[in-house]
Design a protein around this nucleic acid. Structure first.
Lengths: 195, 195
DNA sequence: TATTTGTCGAGACTGAACGTCTCTGCAAAC
DNA sequence: GTTTGCAGAGACGTTCAGTCTCGACAAATA
């Protein structure tokens, strides 16, 4: 049934610059704390593009948002290796928490998590994003375990989830701050898993 | 300026039965995994009520949803006191995780968290709901600490957040299951904070 | 009992937003 | 130079939240 392309491509090609402009505009709007949920209309206007052009590249608003987020997902987690596992862990958590001290970023992440609950595209991006973060923390914990600062039997994946769990739990429920003191306390409790 | 009610109430009174029907209908619809986000229209139809009647009792859809949820929020957390702190903790976490094994409940909680991010009414309900849970777990941890099974210096609030953090993190990102093994491992890591 | 008052269900209406369709212009391949 | 398909613009259909209006009706009062 599907006989595929039966002749070479002709006609005008899609404009990659438009795609870039759309992604940039989307990300810019997502940062704006004022707008609660970005609209396609706003993205098109901000990018100086027709709505249809957006739907030529992506199947839905969620897909655009997901793509825009994904390309900025590689936020740098500074590599720490001061020799002291506890200090490295505390620094890692402090950095992670501090990033969300920026309310723009915190709002963005809240939006992503919310949207991921009913948009599979966003869910996929969030899954990839968090997986990268988990891996980074796990590497740190492995180093600590190999150095004998964590119990050999410790469930490192669970420890990772406990750490990021606190971050997301507090981000989404907002009952307690994600400040430096919290990071220190969390690091201390995690490190208490001493071998 | 506000001279208050200048005469006793007259006229037909609001129908409490309608209010009940609306709340019940809302909760029923929230459980339905098919509908992604309940509509006022659907609530009104399900309750056999006019839309305006809903807005006569609540200011917004979020408020209705929040109220419907709040009245069912008192899910029973069985009181455990077997004498063994570790066993009690494991049982508490196993119960908590098991509740979300029900996909209806898990979906509902996902919806609540998502909606809470941009609806203050829902956010309030979620905050109250989680606060009750945190208190229950904290009592359990205090007992463990008093029994010398947790370090005296342990930051119990942080431990509580680490526990519920794992629950919410896994619920929302879905990278790992909330099964009994997870509950056991989590209990073990928390209890490792031995004094 | 008759009047007043405010709720009832029903449905029209507004406004926001998603996503589709259509139009004219234009750029790239043939 | 013709064909093909993307460009931006905007009209359009649809869904949904929330408001407004209407005739019916129930409760309190006179």
């Amino acid at each position: 049934m599907d006989d595929g392309p039966r002749r070479p491509h002709t006609g005008r090609r899609r404009n990659d610059a438009a795609k870039e402009a759309i992604l940039d505009a989307t990300f810019r709007l997502l940062s704006d704390p004022g707008t609660d949920g970005v609209t396609i209309e706003a993205i098109a206007a901000e990018a100086g593009v027709g709505r249809q052009t957006i739907y030529r590249w992506w199947p839905s608003k969620g897909a655009v948002v997901a793509d825009a987020l994904a390309r900025h997902a590689r936020v740098v987690v500074p590599e720490r290796d001061t020799g002291s596992f506890t200090a490295d862990l505390a620094a890692f958590l402090t950095d992670s928490f501090a990033g969300l001290g920026n309310e723009d970023l915190a709002n963005r992440l809240r939006q992503i998590v919310a949207e991921a609950q009913h948009d599979e595209h966003v869910a996929r991006v969030l899954a990839d994003f968090t997986a990268v973060r988990r891996t980074a923390l796990r590497v740190l914990l492995e180093r600590g375990r190999d150095a004998g600062e964590l119990a050999a039997a410790a469930d490192l994946d669970m420890l990772v989830d406990m750490a990021y769990g606190v971050l997301y739990y507090r981000l989404l429920v907002s009952h307690a701050p994600l400040d430096e003191q919290a990071a220190r306390s969390l690091a201390a409790e995690l490190a208490r898993s001493a071998g």
